[in-house]
């Protein structure tokens, strides 16, 4: 972000200046460090509620990463969906767990070991897949200005043209409507129950 930071009289060692001095790079490393820290806390903390809170901050850090890539709407959607979702999760955790706040979990060593082995294998696969990408060395490629702003995204989501997504969009809305109706049907009282309640009240 600060190109050609030429400070005469200040002898810097022979480093690729654009890399460590770029403001975007510094921001990326800070945000990535926060994200990793909160992600580790999410799995390491014993209490479910605390891990939910760390999960939220990890999601927020991800949203900031999206912002750094100029994907504003995705970032806001990330915060909107996940903060709301985790809040609901917190409500259900409080409602459904009886021993919340006590250190109830004690994982056994073999399980910890298996988890470590699995995650290390996963990391290895990811590194193997990502490393050959040629753009990796030159930093993340951010989308052009206003490419993923609200208007372009809306125009494409509701567009009829060859790059429009109107049909998937409408199908998703039908799916959501179905889940809503299903939830209401499951939660609704049957006629017998209503009559019983009325009898009790009288």
């Amino acid at each position: 972000m600060f190109p050609n930071l030429n400070l005469p009289g200040l002898q810097l060692p022979d480093l690729p200046l654009a890399f460590p001095m770029g403001g975007m790079d510094i921001a990326f490393y800070v945000v990535a460090a926060v994200m990793l820290f909160t992600a580790i806390c999410t799995v390491a903390v014993k209490n479910i509620l605390q891990s939910a809170v760390f999960l939220i901050f990890s999601f927020v850090a991800t949203a900031i990463l999206y912002l750094l890539l100029h994907a504003e709407f995705i970032a806001l959607a990330q915060v909107m969906v996940y903060v709301g979702g985790v809040v609901i999760f917190v409500v259900f955790t409080i409602l459904l767990t009886s021993h919340l706040g006590e250190d109830a979990f004690a994982t056994k060593i073999p399980r910890v070991f298996a988890a470590f082995a699995l995650s290390i294998a996963f990391v290895l696969v990811m590194v193997k897949c990502i490393l050959p990408t040629p753009e990796l060395a030159s930093g993340a490629v951010s989308s052009p200005e206003n490419y993923s702003g609200l208007e372009p995204i809306a125009m494409r989501l509701l567009g009829y043209g060859p790059d429009g997504f109107i049909i998937p969009f409408e199908v998703v809305s039908i799916l959501l409507l179905m889940t809503l109706i299903c939830a209401i049907t499951v939660a609704r009282k049957s006629k017998d129950e209503v009559e019983k309640e009325k009898a009790v009240q009288q």
């Binding site: 509620l49 809170v53 915060v79 903060v83 809040v87 409080i94 609200l150």
Partner: peptide, 27 residues
């Protein structure tokens, strides 16, 4: 910012979260 209203909607969720956490953690 160009997306002011979505940002307001997005950050409003934090208020609920804070109140829930405060109520639960008070024991």
């Amino acid at each position: 910012v160009s997306m002011g209203i979505p940002l307001i909607i997005a950050v409003n969720g934090f208020g609920v979260l804070g109140i829930l956490l405060g109520g639960w953690s008070s024991n």
